[in-house]
């Protein structure tokens, strides 16, 4: 049970959006699909869900080719940045129709979530703000109960409270009914506590596909007085620095040698965002 992508390539005129991408999204795991703008994240999600076609390669959903295949497509739901629902349709009607298309859609859960987010289901799509447009789509994604849920920038336009509520509901839903969730986002710090696996895409190629733990143990963060930190990092692979007054933090790739750690320096985990920036720069 998985989404398997084999040798996927896609060009937009002279721009190569995906370049021979092969990856497997396994059952009941939460993935973070991370990449800079234009890296190919949305293209990949759109091809998985048959919204656009690849130039080469194939996508298999539970071993069924997904291209033009209703049986495979009914196993995936993609919440995208763009709205595809009719502008003049009421949210409650969209929920009802989602139930018609996806048999396992949980209307009760959707209505409860709408209440929590204070979303009026009598409103039409056109009448919603950017934040609430994301919210109604997020609610559908969390209630649709398909084995694979793909979220493309799910917290776009959401305020801090709503983002917090979304992550809480995502974890709740995953704990109750596990499914494969792929979150494509720019807000790496926020999502880093939710995801188990990290997939980094750069210029149409997958450059990292590891568990979050594997990735974070690839380095460490050292903090202390600026002079001590500067001395310690000499000859080490530093991927980022933060300075606040006389204090400094350095993000270092490689294994920590605890016995060589001078007094006055503190060690903490690697920062996913710093690691991401280092991996995707240049």
């Amino acid at each position: 049970m998985s989404i398997e992508i084999k040798n996927l390539s896609k060009n937009y005129k002279s721009v190569q959006a995906l370049d021979d991408v092969s990856i497997r999204f396994e059952e009941n795991k939460i993935y973070g699909l991370l990449g800079r703008n234009g890296a190919g994240k949305t293209t990949l999600l759109n091809i998985i869900t048959n919204r656009i076609f690849a130039d080469r390669g194939e996508v298999f959903i539970d071993d069924i080719p997904s291209k033009e295949n209703d049986q495979a497509l009914q196993k995936v739901y993609l919440m995208s940045e763009k709205n595809f629902y009719p502008d003049k349709m009421k949210i409650k009607d969209i929920f009802r129709w989602t139930g018609e298309f996806y048999g396992k859609f949980d209307m009760e859960s959707a209505m409860n979530m709408a209440e929590k987010f204070e979303l009026s289901t009598n409103k039409v799509v056109k009448g919603l703000s950017t934040g609430y447009t994301s919210i109604f789509k997020v609610i559908i994604a969390l209630s649709v109960n398909t084995p694979y849920v793909l979220l493309d920038e799910p917290v776009l336009g959401l305020d801090a409270n709503h983002r917090d509520l979304f992550y809480k509901l995502l974890i709740e839903k995953y704990s109750e009914k596990p499914s494969t969730i792929i979150v494509s986002t720019h807000l790496i710090e926020e999502v880093s506590n939710v995801i188990e696996n990290v997939v980094v895409i750069k210029k149409g190629k997958i450059i990292k596909d590891e568990t979050r733990e594997e990735l974070l143990t690839a380095g460490y963060t050292i903090s202390g007085s600026a002079s001590l930190v500067d001395q310690y990092i000499l000859g080490k692979s530093v991927i980022g620095l933060d300075v606040l007054g006389g204090l400094k933090s350095a993000y270092i790739l490689g294994e920590l040698e605890k016995d060589k750690l001078p007094e006055g320096l503190e060690v903490s985990r690697m920062d996913l965002q710093k690691l991401f920036i280092q991996m995707t720069n240049a």
Binding site: N50, E68, D70, L73, Q74, S80, F84, P86
Partner: peptide
């Protein structure tokens, strides 16, 4: 509009 609604809801072009 229908095309958008259907690709959002996992309906193939054939269907």
């Amino acid at each position: 509009e229908t095309f958008g609604m259907f690709i959002q809801n996992g309906v193939s072009r054939k269907t």
